[in-house]
């Protein structure tokens, strides 16, 4: 169980948010959720922060790339692990995420055990 690890998930799909929350809370994570990049930044402005962020790429208002770039521009999030969780899997998109400052890339449909393992690796 991954107790005391706070995860922010960012995804515009209500169904995906529900699935992520169920998968992570059952493994002991504390989960907060945002519906897009703007929502995530607003939440992070009002709160002390999280241990790791898991974000989708294709979202309205602000996509995952924009969110990563915005976070890496703030000193307090310079070292926060950010994992992309996306249906996309092209090398071009991965390279763009890496250049923006992402920590890793996970392809949907996600495997909850693999996601758990990745979260442990990037937070320890």
């Amino acid at each position: 169980m991954s107790q005391n690890i706070n995860v922010l998930t960012v995804d515009d799909s209500a169904s995906m948010r529900a699935l992520l929350k169920a998968a992570l809370t059952s493994r002991g994570y504390e989960v907060v959720q945002a519906v897009d990049g703007v929502d995530a930044l607003e939440w992070l402005d009002r709160n002390p922060g999280v241990d790791v962020i898991v974000t989708d790429i294709n979202m309205p208002r602000m996509d995952g790339f924009g969110l990563i770039e915005a976070l890496r521009g703030q000193s307090r999030f310079r070292d926060c692990p950010i994992l992309v969780l996306s249906t996309e899997s092209s090398d071009e998109k991965k390279a763009r995420a890496r250049s923006a400052g992402a920590t890793g890339w996970i392809v949907k449909p996600f495997d909850a055990d693999k996601l758990d393992s990745a979260l442990r690796r990037v937070t320890h």
């Binding site: 899997s89 996970i106 449909p109 393992s117």
Partner: peptide
């Protein structure tokens, strides 16, 4: 199988 939750850490 290639889209079953593959993880790549940078």
């Amino acid at each position: 199988q290639k889209v079953r939750g593959d993880v790549e850490l940078f």
